[in-house]
Each structure stands twice: as C-alpha cells, then as structure tokens.
Amino acid sequence: MTTETKRAADRPAEGGAEPHPTILETSGVTLRFGGLTSLDHVDLAMRRGEILAIIGPNGAGKTSLFNSLTGAYLPQEGAITYRPRAGGEEELRGRKPFRVSRLGLARTFQNIRLFGALTALENVKIAVETRQRTDAVSIMLGLPHARRAERDSDRRAHEVMRFVGLEHRINELAASLSYGEQRRLEIARALATEPELLLLDEPAAGTNPTEKHDLEELIRRINTELGVSVLLIEHDMRLVMSVADRVAVLNFGRKIAEGTPGQVQRDPAVIEAYLGASDEEEAEAVADLVADLDAEHADDPEWRGGDRAAEGRSNDGEERP
C-alpha cells in the first residue's frame, strides 16, 4: 500500500480526470484568542505543485494559520477546503490533527518536535507506520503479514532517510543530531507520511549558510521529484525569494499581499508592514532603496536584506494587542 501511494506521488497525475488545479483554499478563516484576532478573514488559494511562501513580521499569524490548517487550532469562522489528488473535497476546519495528516497534509514545527529518545530511523518509522493497519493481535502473535509490514516500514524509512541525506545517521538518537540534521529529520518524518502538501514552519531557522543551501535544494527536490506542493513559512528572505513560486504576506492576521516574489518585494503595503513607513513618499523611497540594494548585492549570498528588516520590525509586531 505504501509503495503504491509513493508511485502515485512520483508521477504527475496522468490519465483519468485531471485533478483540480487548486489543492488548498481558505476563505474567510478567522481565529480569535479572546480579544486578540490572530487570523482575520484570510483568503488563500494554493495551486497544486507550487511552492507558496508565507512571510510576515513576527506575530503576524503565520504559525496560527498552520495550526488552523492542520487541526491544532479551531478557527471560529471560515472554510478550509483541501482537494486531494484522488478527487473530492475535504473540509479541514475542525478536523483532528491525525485525520488531517492522513488526508495528505504533513507539517514540521517551528521549534523542532522530534521524539528525542528514539533513533532517527524510529522517528521516521513511526510516520510510515501511521499508514499501516496491522492490528495489535497479529503483531503479538507474530503473524506473517505483521512481519511483512514491519519490513516494509523499515525499507520505506531507509528510503526517506536516503532522500533527505541522513542515511549515515539512522541509528543516532534524534536528540543527538545537529540542529540542521534535526530540521532535516523533521522533514523526513513529514515526508514519510507520503503527503501531497507539505507545510514547513521556518525550516531554515537556526541553520548555517551551508545547511540553508542544502535545505533550499531539498525543498526543490521535494517539490519536483516527489510532486509535493510546499507551503513554507520562512524569515530568510533570500531563501524565500529563490525557492518560492509565489509569496503571500500576512500582517496582524490579515493577508496584505500575494504574488510572485518580485511583485511582493515591490508592494508598498509589504514594505510598510516590514519597515513601518508612515507615508507613501517614504515608502516609495524605501522601496527604491531596497531595489537598489538588491541589485547591488544580487551576487552576494551573505546579504539578507529583507531578513534584517524583519528583525527591525519584529518587536513592535509582538507588542501590538
């Protein structure tokens, strides 16, 4: 069963009815915590097979959106429609997290949440095995199909570990891996559930430039080789601009812009959100400045202009009720 789904994921949908071009659609999603509105009527449409990045200052509601999509939070209003490749429509709002995962949405966490006392391979096996249906009694009796399922999960977990480039660390404890490797292991665990849509919550946070570069490549490979659509939250603007097909910008729970990386970069509303410009002239001046700097440093991999801007703004963003 597991291998079949994988093969299905490998090839772009062919034959039969063409799957709906929109894989995920949120309309009017609103999430409130008491008086605080974390998400305010967010409308977002994600195309099948694209890499969509969500950016925004700290506290803009990016992770809240992820939690709402995956069933960890229950938004008070709105609809989240998910269209699996197999056809049909699923309403995700109010689904239990494990059901969302089974529909084909996998996620990673901003603050890494691995099972630290288990080995790296076991972490991935747990994810593979959520797609198996072997019952406890056959396992206890050691029936042939239970043994076969165990072998399958082992093989599949090895495959995934090879894909993310961690095959040399499979027997290490998850907690003893380096930070970048832990990030990669989290992605491996998510991939092992054979998702159609992968939600990455700041995968580059706390990684060094080399690891960032590897990560960028990994995200591209997940997108092209496995045919998985990727929804990405990231603060590292260089990564976002280079990897994302489209970018959506959130600020105070509202979507303020959406478009290609180039469009978004020039959007005055976005620049205002990040730099807090008070009037339009200033915003324009800043936009020009940013464009100039971007052109100047286009070849310099160390330059992360947007990111620095995000940090400058971050404190204000968190304190606003």
Binding site: A205, G206, N208
Partner: peptide, 16 residues
C-alpha cells in the same frame, strides 16, 4: 529537542 531555541529570525552565524 523541544527545549532548543526557536530562533525566529536569528542571524545564522554559528557552525554546523
């Protein structure tokens, strides 16, 4: 693993 820094927009300057 959970106790590790969330490190939102922290510039990454440390080694691997």
């Amino acid at each position: 693993t959970r106790a590790m820094p969330a490190a939102g927009g922290r510039p990454a300057t440390t080694g691997g």
